[in-house]
Structures are given as C-alpha cells and as structure tokens.
Write a protein that binds this DNA or RNA. Structure first.
Lengths: 190, 190
DNA sequence: GTTAAACATGTAAACAATGACATGTTTAAT
DNA sequence: ATTAAACATGTCATTGTTTACATGTTTAAC
C-alpha cells in the first residue's frame, strides 16, 4: 500500500505548529490523527534521522528533569516548502482501504452461521468501543455548543478528522447490524 | 501495515471454490474484493511460490491455445484446514485504516480556502466515480428484485462486500459534502 | 522507599509491498 | 496482415512496516 513517503509528510505536518520530539510524534499517532495514519516508534525515529539528513528538519536538545534528554525537532524553511507543496497535491487515484474483516467475510460460505454471528459480534464490540472513544474525544475538544463555522482555523483540521472518524465508525456499525439481521433471517429460514 | 500474512489467506480464500492461476487472482483483486484487499502481480506470484513450498496449494499446467501455459493452483487439504482456522479467528484490535486525504486535511490550517475546496472537489470526483462503478457492479450481479434473504450462500459474501463498499463510499461522499459546506460558510464569514 | 506506568531514544532482523525490468502468447478489431 | 489490448508469468531492487532487542529516566501511587 503506502503511497510515496506518506510518513515523511505526516511528520512534517505534525511539526507545522510546534516543535516536537520523536516521542511526541509517536503519541500524536495514538490520538485523532492515528485514525488515518500511524507508525511505530522504530519507524518514526528512523524517518526523523532521514529528514534531518535531508535538512527538512533541525534538532536541539531539551532537558526533562536532570538527565533525560529530549531531542526536539523543528521544521526548516526547506521542510515548510516541501510540506506546503505536498498539502496542495491532488490524488489521482484511490488506494485500496484494506479491511481484514470484510476480506474474511467474502469467504463466508465456509463459515457456519453461528460462528459467523460470533465474528460479527466481536467486530461490533471493537467498533462500538472505538466509536465511544472518538465521541469522548469529540466532547472533550468541541463540547456540544461549538459550531464548526465559529471554530478557530487551528482546530478545524482536528474537527474534520474527528467527525470523519466518527462518521466512518457509525457507518460501519450500521452496516454490521444490517448484515447481522440478514444472517439471522436466513438462519430462521433454514 | 499489513497484519500477519493476510495475502496468504486472501489467496487461499480465493482458491476455496475453484482452481485459479496467478493471473486470475490478480484479476480478482481488481473486482469487488479489491475494495478490501489487493496486491500487485509481483507479490502474488511470489506468495504462490511460497504457498507451494508450504504445501498449502498444489499446481498443474493448463494450456490456453497452443503454447500459452497457465499454471493453475488448487487448495490442498492442509491449505483448506489452515484457511478454515483463519476464517474463524476473531480480531483482537482494529488497525489504522490509512487515508491520505484525511491526513492532509488534518494539516489544513496551512491551505488557503480555495485550494482546500479544489482538494475536496477532486476527492469528491474520485469517490463519486468509484461509487458509480460499485453500483453498476451491484446492479449487474444482484439487480433490483433480489432480496439478500433469498440469495444463494455462494453469493452472500459478494453481496456483503459490495454493500459494504457502497455504504463506505456513500458515507465518505456525505461527509465530504458536509465539510465543503462548512468551509464555504466560513469563507463567506471572512 | 519501592514499584509501576509513562516518558524517552535508539538499532537490527524479518516481513510486506511496490515499481521496474523482462518476456512471450492469444484474441479481437481494423 | 497488422496492431493493440488482454492474457500470462516471473525476478529484482528498493521502500515501507513490524517485532524484537536494548537501555535508561521521571512521575505518581502506595
């Protein structure tokens, strides 16, 4: 999968507002943006090293306590330009959005109805938990009264991504429940 | 990304009903199931070789015309068992569903409104085309009168996967249009 | 004071995936 | 007869990603 050097731009993008450490970037991928891109710390540290060599970022040391050295990264001018160009790039095709549950389901002819429903239940559980987490995040950041038209430009990206993730999960859950109904009806008809 | 050897099981799964060649499998990934998993022919031929070594599949030659040799693959008993076990496996977590458009959008603070709308238009176009293709596929295979309860078990997987893909795209398009409205309203308020 | 969780940074081996290279046949249209 | 598209199979170099290895500090709870 993986279009060309997406992690590179994900990192440059995360550095657009504030300087961050590798650990900070790793943490960001566990928040909202992690719904749409993520990477392990091993890959992040390696990519940061590469970006330094390419002079798209620079680094300095910040002390956290007495001994713990945090290596902070800043976007260079070159890095800002590169990021800006990428942000304006239009995709010319859509990549496969891989989904192992759907793949498995395609082969369902060989799965007994009861096991099939167990698979659906499990997926429904995972998705419901995820949706709840996302809704909590939404409530925490945007509350109920906040209308997107009045939002600060800084928060708009976060707003879009969170609403996208929520909408994706709601849609997934809706389809899961619809499909379970069909399976149950077929089971009854047997 | 890629959870553990998903391509392996995708291939075993595609061989569950009929023998297929590497080319056939490559073609399948351009159809419905390609919405949820896909691979290039280079990876497929390599994986087939590996599966042969592991004795999960066996192969024979079929002539197509006078000279063209098609290498056909069949699931072995061992392969069937392995596939069956995998089909019943419950996921214990959800992987990041990577989406470069959403990632880009997260950094939208640095994109002028007009450019942003152009990015959205482009995405809307790509998604609308895809949705139309999926709907054509649906109409072709299931028509209008076909109720899922009455479907042959053989076709049910296909039905679920197609409706899933359609629902995903419709949801994506809906969110795109909603977001574009918000951007236009904010633009007006400037 | 101990301990566990979170903070913090890196490397290396193995595995997954793409793009380019490489070659040849069959079918359908003109 | 020619030609283009589809059929058909493979390898190799590079890039992307994960898992495991490896080490140490700080903070908050008990």
């Amino acid at each position: 999968m993986a279009a060309r050097r997406v992690l590179k731009y994900a990192i440059l993008g995360l550095l657009r507002k504030d300087d961050k450490s590798g650990y900070d970037i790793t943490s960001d991928f566990k928040q909202a943006i992690g719904q749409f891109w993520s990477a392990k710390h091993s890959q992040i540290y390696t990519e940061l090293k590469k970006l330094l060599e390419e002079e798209l970022i620079s680094s300095y040391i910040e002390l956290s306590g007495e001994k713990l050295e945090k290596k902070m990264y800043t976007l260079t001018e070159k890095g800002k330009e590169d990021l800006h160009t990428w942000l304006l790039t239009q995709d010319d095709h859509l990549e496969t959005e891989k989904d192992v549950f759907a793949l498995r389901l395609y082969f369902l002819k060989d799965i007994p109805s009861a096991d099939l429903l167990a698979l659906f239940e499990n997926q429904l559980n995972l998705r419901t938990n995820k949706l709840n987490m996302l809704k909590e995040q939404y409530a925490y950041h945007f509350g109920e009264e906040n209308r997107p038209v009045d939002l600060d430009a800084d928060d708009l990206g976060h707003y879009f991504v969170l609403t996208k993730a929520i909408s994706r999960e709601e849609n997934y859950i809706f389809w899961l429940m619809e499909s379970m109904d069909i399976i149950r009806q077929r089971q009854y008809g047997e």
